[in-house]
Simulated assay, not measured.
Amino acid sequence: MTDRNADGLDTMDRAIGARVRARRRSLNMSQSDLAEKLGVSFQQVQKYERGANRISGSTLVAAAQALQTSVSWLVGEDGGSAAPPDEAFAALMTPGAMEMLEAFSAVRRPRARQALLALAREMGKE
């Protein structure tokens, strides 16, 4: 039996999709570029990244090659310190999370970053 979360999506499919999205974005690759390399539509890439559709084994291998990483990293079996915990990837699935992280990373002053973090934590309490 598969482990499904509140929205009915398989937890492992979401985790793999989040890793695909994070890696694709770190390479500044568009969904269309990845779709072309995989031989699928960009809508299919969107579904993979959300975990709405399961990535087949052959497509997972092709995705790892296109994303210049390993299949083991994409499925969270790498064991290395390069892969953040699944909770971090789950948080990155929140709409706007990647954009917020990119904007936060662009803030150069440590005190400004601390203030933004405090604001976000306070807003999260509501």
Rank of each mutant, 00 (worst) to 15 (best):
M1A: 13
M1E: 13
M1F: 10
T2D: 10
T2W: 08
T2K: 15
D3R: 10
D3V: 11
R4N: 09
N5W: 08
D7M: 07
D10R: 04
D10W: 02
T11N: 02
M12E: 08
D13I: 03
D13L: 00
R14M: 10
A15V: 01
I16Q: 02
G17R: 01
G17C: 07
R19H: 05
V20L: 15
R21L: 06
R21S: 10
S26K: 08
L27C: 01
N28Q: 05
N28V: 02
S30F: 01
S30I: 03
S30K: 01
Q31T: 11
Q31G: 09
S32N: 01
D33Y: 00
D33E: 14
D33Q: 12
L34F: 00
L34K: 00
A35Y: 02
E36V: 06
K37W: 00
K37E: 07
K37Y: 01
L38E: 01
L38P: 00
L38Y: 03
V40H: 03
S41E: 11
S41R: 04
F42W: 02
Q43C: 00
Q44N: 04
Q44A: 12
Q46P: 00
Y48F: 15
Y48M: 04
E49N: 04
E49T: 05
E49A: 09
R50Y: 02
G51H: 01
A52K: 13
A52R: 07
A52Y: 05
N53Y: 15
R54K: 14
R54P: 02
R54T: 13
I55S: 01
S56V: 03
G57Q: 10
S58C: 01
T59D: 10
T59M: 12
T59S: 12
T59I: 11
L60D: 04
V61F: 09
A62T: 07
A63P: 07
A64E: 09
Q65L: 15
Q65N: 11
A66Y: 13
A66M: 11
Q68F: 06
Q68H: 12
T69D: 03
T69N: 04
T69V: 10
V71G: 06
V71I: 13
S72Y: 08
W73E: 11
G76E: 07
D78F: 06
G79L: 08
G79S: 05
G79R: 09
G80H: 10
G80A: 08
A83E: 05
P85T: 12
D86N: 14
E87S: 14
A88V: 15
A88F: 14
F89W: 10
A91G: 04
A91M: 14
L92T: 02
L92Q: 08
L92C: 09
T94F: 09
P95I: 14
M98A: 06
E99C: 04
L101K: 03
E102F: 12
E102D: 15
A103T: 12
F104L: 15
S105E: 15
A106C: 08
V107Q: 08
R108K: 15
P110T: 10
P110I: 12
R111M: 12
R111A: 15
Q114K: 12
A115L: 15
A118V: 11
A120H: 05
A120I: 14
R121D: 11
R121P: 00
R121H: 07
E122G: 05
E122R: 14
G124Y: 11
G124M: 07
K125A: 12
K125G: 06
K125Y: 05
K125M: 10
